[in-house]
Amino acid sequence: MTAEAEIPVKIHLITKIRLDDEEETYELVVFGHYFKKNNKVYLTYDEVQEEGTVRSVVKVDEDEATILRKGVIDMRLKFCLNEQKSGSHMSEFGSLLLSTNTRGIFFEESAEKCEGTVKLHYDLFMQGAHAGEYDMEINYKEE
C-alpha cells in the first residue's frame, strides 16, 4: 500500500446521541476513499441529502481527529482527548459555534489490509449549550 494511493472503501458510520433521557441512533453506509498522508489516515465520502451533496473528510491519527464537511453544510469539528476544541457549522440558516469535549478516542488499523475502526466519545456544545453526548463509530474496509 503506497502512502499517497487512494483506495476505494466501504464506510459504515454509527452515531449514538444521548441528551437528557433520550437516545437516538443514526447509521450511514457509503462508499468512499482511504488514503494516508503525513502518518494520518483520511477517509473521504459524499453524503447525498435532500438539499444537496455534502463532501465529508475524516482525518485521524492515534490521539486526535478532525471531521470536515463541505457542501450544503459546512462543518468543522476537532477532537483531542480531554480537551475542549472549537468548531463551526454553517448552512443556509446561518452559522453556529460548536465545541467538542472529547472523552475517548480509539483508532485501530489492520497492518495486513485496508480496514480499521475509529471511535469518538464526546460532548457536543452548540453556542455554548450542551447538545448531547455522542458516540461515533466509523468502520472502513477495502471494497
Rank of each mutant, 00 (worst) to 15 (best):
T2M: 06
E4Y: 13
I7Q: 04
V9Q: 03
I11L: 00
T15M: 04
D20A: 15
D21A: 14
E23N: 14
E24F: 14
E24Y: 06
T25Y: 05
T25Q: 01
E27T: 00
V29G: 07
V30M: 02
Y34V: 06
K36W: 03
N38H: 07
N39C: 06
N39V: 09
V41F: 04
Y45I: 05
T53V: 13
V54F: 05
V54T: 01
S56L: 14
S56C: 09
V58R: 04
V58H: 03
V60C: 02
D61C: 05
E62N: 04
I67F: 10
L68P: 07
R69H: 03
R69W: 02
R69P: 02
K70S: 14
G71S: 03
V72I: 13
D74Q: 14
D74H: 13
D74R: 00
M75C: 08
M75A: 08
L77Y: 03
F79H: 05
E83Q: 05
E83W: 06
K85I: 01
S86M: 09
G87T: 02
G87Y: 04
H89T: 10
F93K: 13
L98S: 11
T100S: 03
T100Y: 11
T100F: 11
T102A: 04
K113Y: 05
K113A: 00
C114I: 10
K119A: 07
D123C: 12
G128D: 07
A131P: 05
Y134I: 13
D135K: 10
D135A: 11
I138W: 00
K141V: 06
